[in-house]
Design a protein around this nucleic acid. Structure first.
Lengths: 149, 149
DNA sequence: TATTGTTATACTCTATAACTATA
DNA sequence: TATAGTTATAGAGTATAACAATA
């Protein structure tokens, strides 16, 4: 597709990554949304559900359901918050920690594989270009949010 | 984020595009999945639901629901297939055609805006890099599909 | 009063399976 | 027999609103 628009290329990658992630979790009790919760807790350590909701920019109700499923599957547990009896601290179980260790390795390996597929001279410009696109997209999204107030 | 992995950059753009599209359709009866149907019919002309399902790689049942919603909203209609009485030909209404004309312009404008945000010397390498990533991702997805048979 | 999390409710996207009408 | 589409059913993600317990 030599004449494609930049946006079409970005949407193509978006579609591939979305589908590939969903496929990777088929036949497990994990899903992309549940893994989102796992990444937050993996990176930030034990977190309240409110903090997770803010981090993912989803509703508190949504987090309740995702944590329910992950707790059922044994990847995390709700524990008492030491200072606030309203809140739960969501904490990874040993199995959850093991899952995320593996996931982090696979994530890095996939990133390296994709980078290796790019011509060496194009790698730095690709990364700079993606950063520029991200910055512009963030500006456009902020503008829309403002206008839609 | 100067030290981010390539994959993290790609996922960031994926997240931004996904959210931005969903936001763009808030307060309308359109959604990203419904617009997917609209794009197929816009590009391919009157299409059977089966053809749409193949194009989008979703189930026939799914297309039934999406076409139901778009027909209710007045963007397309089911018409009789001239040669196969089992099939429906999904056809854009004048309003649907108008919608897609506008959408195509906005799509091109967004693409140009994103491209303009990238340093001129980085634009060609960015596009080449994205094509390389897409090709590699397609290979990896094909490998997984084969292994999971 | 404000906040955390849950229950209640609803909509969308998605899938498989069974069924109808046609090929 | 095979195919196009629908109905039936189900699970997942998401949201708002009302409510309980606690701050």
């Amino acid at each position: 597709m030599p004449d494609s628009l930049l946006l079409d290329r970005l949407l193509k990658v978006t579609d591939q990554l979305t589908r590939d992630m969903a496929r990777a979790f088929a036949d497990t009790e994990l899903t992309p949304a549940r893994m989102g919760v796992m990444w937050v807790v993996h990176h930030d350590g034990p977190s309240t559900q409110k903090a997770i909701a803010r981090h993912l920019d989803v509703s508190a109700r949504n987090v309740t359901g995702l944590v329910d499923a992950l707790e059922r599957s044994g990847y995390l547990v709700r524990t008492a918050h030491p200072a606030d009896r309203r809140a739960h601290l969501v904490t990874l179980t040993p199995i959850g920690t093991e899952l995320m260790t593996t996931a982090a390795h696979e994530h890095a390996a996939l990133s390296a594989s994709l980078r290796a597929a790019v011509a060496p001279a194009d790698r730095a410009p690709l990364e700079r270009g993606l950063d520029a696109v991200t910055t512009r997209l963030a500006e456009l999204i902020a503008l829309e949010a403002k206008g839609a107030s």
